[in-house]
Simulated assay, not measured.
Amino acid sequence: MGGIGQETVDLARLVHNVHEQGFTALDKVGLEGQRDQGLVSTLISRDLSGSDDLCVSWGKILPGQHHLCHHHPDASEFYVVISGTPMVHLGGTTYRAKPGDAIYIPRGTSHGLTNDGDEDVDLVVGVSKPADWQFIPDE
């Protein structure tokens, strides 16, 4: 086969599965030394996929965990809630999200998540840079 858009691709580099990748703990620290909480599995990034324009991950916030409020001066972000009903902190507003919600976080906007429920919160997370965005804690 040939033609436009028919080049051979490296599926091992372009296709990643959350169940095969596994999760790592978030590792940021807040303004008073508090630890960021939650798990992440990076699925698309510069290093993993060769992306030059975005990073996509699967996030998991366990019951009782809080993903620190922070902002990115150099990147926008989005969340798509897959399961659970987290409290989303977005700018000066806090609200209860539900599965199916898509949340756009403009560059520079403070945001974070609290799982005060009994089930895991699963979400797809996207950032408008493939790597190396700044994480500035707001709490």
Results as ranks from 00 to 15, higher is better:
E32H: 12
G92P: 13
T24F: 09
P63S: 06
E20M: 04
L123V: 01
G30N: 11
E7W: 06
C55I: 13
D120N: 01
S128E: 08
L54Y: 03
A25T: 13
A131P: 10
A102P: 05
G92M: 15
V80Q: 05
G22V: 03
G117H: 10
G2Y: 15
A97M: 00
S110P: 15
L11T: 06
G112A: 10
D120C: 02
A131D: 07
S83N: 09
E119L: 12
L31R: 09
S51Y: 04
T109R: 13
R13C: 12
I105E: 12
Q6G: 08
E32P: 04
Y79V: 00
P130H: 11
D138Y: 06
R46F: 13
G2M: 15
M1R: 02
G22A: 02
D101V: 13
K98V: 01
H72P: 07
D122C: 01
D101F: 06
G108T: 15
H72I: 04
G5Y: 15
G84E: 13
G112H: 07
V121C: 06
D138R: 15
T85G: 05
M1S: 12
T8H: 09
L123T: 06
P99A: 02
V18R: 12
V127D: 05
P63Q: 07
G59H: 05
H16W: 03
L68V: 10
A12L: 14
E7R: 00
L90V: 02
A25C: 08
G126I: 09
A102M: 12
I105K: 07
H71Y: 14
L43C: 13
R46N: 11
S110C: 13
P73N: 06
T42Q: 00
S76H: 14
G112N: 05
Q65M: 08
V124C: 04
K60E: 05
H72F: 11
H16Y: 12
H89Y: 12
T114Q: 10
R35Y: 13
S110G: 11
L113S: 00
F135W: 10
G64I: 11
D74S: 02
H19A: 08
R46E: 14
V125M: 03
I4Y: 07
K60R: 09
G59D: 12
